[in-house]
Design a protein around this nucleic acid. Sequence first.
DNA 1: CGACTAGTGCTTGTATACAAGTGCTTCGCG
DNA 2: CGCGAAGCACTTGTATACAAGCACTAGTCG
Lengths: 237, 237
Amino acid sequence: MAHTNGRRTSRRDIYLKLRQMVLTLELAPGAALSENELAASMGVSRTPVRESLILLAQEGLVQVFPKIGSFVSRVDPAQVADAQFLREAVELASLDDLPGDLDAALVEELRDNLKRQRHADLDLEEFFTLDEAFHHGLMRLSGHGNVWTTVAAAKGHLDRARRLGLHENESPAVFAAQHHEILDAVVGGDVPLARTAMRTHLRAVFQDIERIRAHSPELFAAGASTVPVRRNVVVWE
Amino acid sequence: MAHTNGRRTSRRDIYLKLRQMVLTLELAPGAALSENELAASMGVSRTPVRESLILLAQEGLVQVFPKIGSFVSRVDPAQVADAQFLREAVELASLDDLPGDLDAALVEELRDNLKRQRHADLDLEEFFTLDEAFHHGLMRLSGHGNVWTTVAAAKGHLDRARRLGLHENESPAVFAAQHHEILDAVVGGDVPLARTAMRTHLRAVFQDIERIRAHSPELFAAGASTVPVRRNVVVWE
DNA sequence: CGACTAGTGCTTGTATACAAGTGCTTCGCG
DNA sequence: CGCGAAGCACTTGTATACAAGCACTAGTCG
C-alpha cells in the first residue's frame, strides 16, 4: 500500500520504524508514547511523528486519547480472534483458487524459504520474516498476493500475540514442519489436504493465547472500555 | 475503528465527510484535490484536512504525490477484484460459523431491513446503506461483526465500481431478492444453500465491471504505474 | 520564427506557535 | 495534621510560517 508513492519522506521512515517497534514488542503493549519525546529522539518535529501515530491508530496498534496521551495498544483478545478468522478465511479460500500449473519460480522460492526455516540457529525475528514471506508467497501462487496486504494490516494484534507465545515456547521447528506439509500438498495438487494442513497450522498458534494471557495479563486489554490514566507509571483501569 | 476515541474533532468530521464524498462518487475518480482549497471551503486550516487525506491515502481512496498534488484514486480493477475475493472469502466463511440458535432480535432486524429494501421508491444511497447493514448483520449473526470493519475499509474501490454499475443499470430489486434467498437459507439452517446464494449474489455485481469500464474508461486506472500530471485539466498518463 | 531560460504560482513536507484540557503537586488555610 | 484549591507540567488538536520541488508561461536571445 504505497500511500506516499515511493518518495522517501521522514514520515514514511518514522511510520515504518514505529510500526516495526510495536509489532516486535520493542515497544511494549500499554507503553506510553509522547509525540514530543519521539520527535526529539528521532531528530524531527512533531509533525511527521504525529502523522505516523495517526496511521498506527487507524491500524489499531496505538490508541490516541486527546489531551491525555498516546499509548501502544494492549493486545486485545477479541481483535486477535478477528484477525485469526480473517486470515483463515482468506488463506483457505486462496488455496481453492490455485491454478493447475503453478509458477515454477515461485515454488522454488518457497522451497528455498523452507530450507532456511530449518536452520537450527534462527533468530526469532528472522523466523517471523520467513513465515510472513511463506504465507504471502502461497497467496501469490493463486494470484491473490495483493490481498495479503490487507490481511497483514489487520493482524497486528495477532502478530504480537504470536511473538509473546514464541518468546515463551521456542518451537519454530514445529511450524516449519507444518509449512512443509502445506507446500507438499499444494505442489501435489491435493487441495483438501492443503486446506486441512493450513487450518491445523493456523490454529496451532491460536491455542496458546489464553495461557500467555494468564502469564502476562498486563499486556492484554481487559474490558471493552478500558481507558489509560497518565501517572508516574502508566496504569490502565 | 474508533481511532480518536469518540471525542469530536474536526479531523474526524472532515475524514468522514471526505470519505463519504469519495465513496458516493460526489468526488469523481481522478479528481484533483488541494489541501488549501479543501481547508478553505471547510473553514479550517490545512492540518486536519491533510491528516484526513493521509488516512484516505492509506485506505487507497486517494493518492498523494509529494510536491505535485493529491487526487481521488481512479477505480483500480485489480483492487476491485482483490476486494471481491476478500469479501467473498470472509462472508462465506462467516456462514460456516453460524450458531445453531440464531439471535432472534438480529434476525428480526434483518427481516425489517429487507422489508425496507422492497420499497419501490428507494434512493440509491438508501439502498446502499441498507445493503451494507444487511451484510454486516449477517456477519454479526455468526459473531464476526467486527471483521466487517476490515472488509469495509478494504472494499472502497469495489463500492465505487458498484455505484457506477447501479447508476447505469438500476435494478436494486434483483439484489433485494437475492438477499431474501440468503436470509431464508440462513434461518432455515441450510448452510450449503446459503453459501451458494451468497456466492451468486456477490458475483452478480462483479460481472458488469468490464462493461462499465468500456463505457467510462477515464474513471478507471490503466497500467500499474500511472502517474497524474497537473495541467489546466487533470490528465493521467 | 524557434528554442531555451528565468520566473511565477501552485503543490505537499516539515517546523513552530498557540489553544484547550488533564492529572499531579504544592501551598495555604482551618 | 488534614484538606481543598490554585497553579504547574504535560498532553494532543489546530493554525500558521517556511522549505523544496514541479509545471507551465512569458520573455529573451540566437
